[in-house]
Nucleic acid binder design. Structure first.
Length: 274
DNA sequence: ACTATTTCCTGGATGC
DNA sequence: TGCATCCAGGAAATAG
């Protein structure tokens, strides 16, 4: 399930492979769910466009596009293709003769002869067109301690829920919320507004550290996640609480607990997190 | 204005 | 072996 580090890894991998390429044509499947923009709008925004850049914004992958005709230099994007991978979405660069995976919802044919395919079994992913996409919340890797602190002021919701709220921070998902809270020594059910200045400082630091470490390791490969090159990440080997219910805490040896907060499984150490 | 809950969707795991 | 049931979860929709 791609969160910030996985999406960052995928976007970087895609950038090295498709930036500078030109989109010749687009095929969209008949399933309407993955399309947030009308199919015709997506097709016309993509076709005959040069891919200027591929980057991550929150959990979204943004393709900056400009008309393929005209001078290459100093091109400015005139449209953005936004891909959200949801739970099970993937973007694969492959040869046209590569067998079509089940649940392929979009195929983008490139001038280089390759194809960029969007595959998503569970169909939680979304495709859309934007002029200038902006994440609804703060970027977790850039946010200052002051702004981070202000996000949670007056919020009665559990800190775990607040971390997952994309309008506050864009990019944090279930794995990294649990891991950051463990590293900061804070229980997931704590009311966001109840966190002390010192706890907020620790959480701010832990969240950035855990996200950066995960990016360095290519993300967490659980379920069927692989990056744009089909390679697995290794951060799952560094999980200290996520998916470790009943297993000994790596710090105190006590059993890791799993509870449900806002319908999401949440893992923590009752002794190390207060 | 917030917060909590439900819904979407499929494949893999589990249980009888 | 087969079939039913449960569970995973990001984000939008709905309810409180």
């Amino acid at each position: 399930m791609p969160e910030l580090p996985e999406v960052e890894t995928i976007a970087r991998g895609l950038a090295t492979r498709v930036v500078g390429d030109v989109i010749e044509s687009v095929w969209l499947g008949s399933k309407p769910e993955p399309l947030k923009s009308p199919a015709a709008e997506i097709v016309s925004a993509l076709e005959s466009k040069n891919i200027l850049d591929v980057r991550r914004v929150g959990k979204h992958i943004v393709f900056d596009l400009a008309p393929a005709s005209g001078a290459q230099a100093n091109k400015k994007p005139d449209a953005q293709w936004i891909v959200h991978l949801g739970m099970t979405g993937s973007l694969l660069v492959c040869a046209p003769q590569t067998e079509l995976a089940k649940h392929t919802h979009a195929i983008v044919r490139l001038a280089s002869g390759r194809e960029l395919r969007f595959v998503d079994p569970r169909r939680f992913g979304r495709l859309s067109i934007n002029e200038k996409f902006e994440a609804p919340g703060a970027e977790p890797l850039d946010v200052s301690l002051e702004k981070f602190t202000a996000l949670f002021r007056g919020r009665k919701t559990p800190i775990k829920s607040a971390l997952l709220n994309q309008k506050l921070l864009s990019g944090v998902g279930n794995i990294y919320a649990d891991e950051a809270l463990f590293r900061a020594g804070i229980r997931p059910r704590r009311r966001a507004a109840s966190l002390t200045r010192d706890e907020l400082r620790r959480l701010h630091l832990s969240l950035k550290r855990v996200l950066k470490q995960a990016i360095r390791l290519g993300g967490s490969s659980i379920s069927d996640y692989v990056d744009a090159n089909g390679e697995e990440g290794f951060f799952q080997l560094k999980h200290r609480v996520y998916g470790r219910e009943g297993k000994p805490c790596l710090v105190c040896k006590g059993p890791i607990k799993r509870i449900v907060i806002a319908g999401r499984s949440s893992h923590y150490c009752p002794k190390c997190q207060q």
